[in-house]
Computed example of a mutant assay.
Amino acid sequence: MFEFAWPWAFALLPLPWLIALIAGKQKHHSTLMLRIHALAHMGMTNTKVTPSRKWPHWLLAIVWALVVASAANPVFRGEPITLSEPGRDIMLAVDLSGSMREQDMAYQGRFVDRLSVVKAVLSEFISQRRGDQLGLILFADTAFLQTPLTRDVDTVAQMLEESQIGLVGRATAIGDALGLSVKRFNEKSQSNKVVILLTDGQNTAGNLKPEEALILAKDAGVKVYTVGVGADGRNQGGLFSMLGSSGAMLDESLLKTIAEQTGGQYFRATDTQSLANIYKELDALEPQAEQEQTFRPVDALFYLPLSGALLMLFLAALWRQLKQQAVVGDA
């Protein structure tokens, strides 16, 4: 829809005529005397002078109207566009400890390591988070922020895919991961503060105990959903199974306590399907917010009448110059 953002600017349209009306009578006498003096000078020198031509009034009127139209800021407003505001802020905390290398989870007809299954299923969960803000924390000996909270879920998925076991050690610092998540949420003034923490073990490293991190999470109002990954030790062929690092070593009691005391929920992921079902349940537990923001794109068009005014002045000046040259040539 075409409209003028500042229509009151059209009140300036009669300004030149008002000025001319007020100043016209005062200048009439002085202008007449100048013309008489010029004619007398012409008679004394006997020189033929071509009288100057004023700009046509209709041209000046059109130029002024175009300038005023430009000042009124013409715009074109497009059709309303509705965008969903970020429904949730979700921090993903993924375990990269050595036990995540154990190949005890079935995926596409074969047993693969736990991290590969987490990547495959979690990537699908990330791709569906349009409208949410996601962050990624990776932890093992300690925890570090791989991706801050962002709407760019494609980048979060890429950072997860590029993560490797051993990147931050081989132990499991659950307390550090939860504590870092709380810290990142505290930097936001408004947030629903949801953490999804995935691990296959128990806290064996880090500077912050899980119990201490839990207190921080409760004080900050962070809701934590914990996911225990592993096949309950049924597949004992892996190296970490022989070392006692299978799913049977998962500290489910700790994960349940963290989830329950923060208002979240604990889930057990023993295979690909159960992990995928968990993310579907999370969608139901943490539904997308229905808040929407509507705006209309605006294209500024002030340059069109302004360009027209400048073009008319240029063409008129060029025509006048050519005509004067023709008159001088005839003389």
Rank of each mutant, 00 (worst) to 15 (best):
residue 2 F to N: 06
residue 5 A to C: 02
residue 5 A to N: 07
residue 11 A to M: 15
residue 18 L to G: 07
residue 18 L to E: 09
residue 18 L to T: 02
residue 18 L to N: 07
residue 18 L to A: 11
residue 20 A to P: 02
residue 22 I to E: 07
residue 25 K to A: 12
residue 29 H to F: 02
residue 32 L to V: 07
residue 37 H to K: 05
residue 40 A to R: 07
residue 47 T to I: 12
residue 54 K to Y: 01
residue 57 H to I: 13
residue 57 H to V: 13
residue 61 A to F: 10
residue 67 V to Y: 00
residue 74 P to D: 06
residue 76 F to W: 12
residue 77 R to A: 12
residue 78 G to D: 14
residue 80 P to E: 10
residue 82 T to R: 13
residue 84 S to L: 09
residue 84 S to E: 11
residue 87 G to H: 07
residue 88 R to W: 05
residue 90 I to T: 13
residue 92 L to M: 10
residue 98 G to I: 04
residue 100 M to D: 10
residue 106 A to E: 14
residue 107 Y to R: 04
residue 108 Q to C: 02
residue 109 G to N: 14
residue 110 R to F: 02
residue 111 F to K: 06
residue 114 R to P: 00
residue 115 L to A: 08
residue 117 V to K: 01
residue 118 V to F: 04
residue 119 K to T: 03
residue 121 V to W: 09
residue 121 V to N: 11
residue 122 L to G: 03
residue 122 L to Y: 05
residue 123 S to C: 00
residue 124 E to M: 12
residue 128 Q to T: 05
residue 131 G to Y: 14
residue 134 L to A: 08
residue 138 L to V: 13
residue 139 F to P: 15
residue 142 T to Y: 15
residue 142 T to W: 10
residue 144 F to T: 08
residue 147 T to A: 15
residue 147 T to C: 15
residue 149 L to T: 08
residue 151 R to K: 12
residue 151 R to P: 12
residue 152 D to G: 06
residue 159 M to N: 09
residue 163 S to L: 01
residue 165 I to Q: 10
residue 165 I to V: 13
residue 165 I to F: 07
residue 167 L to N: 02
residue 170 R to Q: 15
residue 171 A to L: 06
residue 172 T to S: 14
residue 172 T to Y: 15
residue 176 D to F: 00
residue 178 L to V: 04
residue 179 G to E: 06
residue 183 K to H: 03
residue 185 F to P: 11
residue 189 S to A: 13
residue 189 S to D: 13
residue 191 S to P: 10
residue 192 N to Y: 04
residue 197 L to T: 04
residue 203 N to D: 14
residue 205 A to L: 12
residue 207 N to Q: 14
residue 207 N to H: 08
residue 208 L to G: 09
residue 209 K to R: 11
residue 209 K to M: 14
residue 214 L to T: 04
residue 219 D to T: 03
residue 220 A to F: 00
residue 222 V to M: 06
residue 224 V to D: 06
residue 224 V to C: 03
residue 225 Y to C: 05
residue 225 Y to K: 04
residue 228 G to S: 07
residue 231 A to C: 02
residue 232 D to R: 12
residue 233 G to P: 00
residue 235 N to S: 08
residue 236 Q to H: 00
residue 240 F to A: 04
residue 240 F to D: 09
residue 240 F to N: 09
residue 241 S to A: 09
residue 247 G to V: 08
residue 249 M to L: 11
residue 251 D to N: 11
residue 254 L to Y: 03
residue 254 L to S: 15
residue 258 I to T: 03
residue 260 E to H: 01
residue 262 T to H: 03
residue 266 Y to V: 03
residue 266 Y to A: 01
residue 271 D to H: 04
residue 271 D to S: 04
residue 273 Q to R: 13
residue 281 E to G: 08
residue 285 L to Y: 07
residue 286 E to R: 02
residue 290 E to C: 08
residue 291 Q to N: 14
residue 295 F to L: 15
residue 300 A to F: 03
residue 301 L to C: 02
residue 303 Y to P: 07
residue 306 L to V: 01
residue 307 S to P: 06
residue 310 L to Y: 02
residue 311 L to M: 14
residue 311 L to Y: 08
residue 312 M to A: 14
residue 314 F to W: 13
residue 314 F to V: 13
residue 315 L to V: 15
residue 316 A to S: 11
residue 322 L to Y: 04
residue 328 V to E: 12
residue 329 G to A: 13
residue 329 G to F: 11
residue 329 G to L: 11
residue 330 D to P: 02
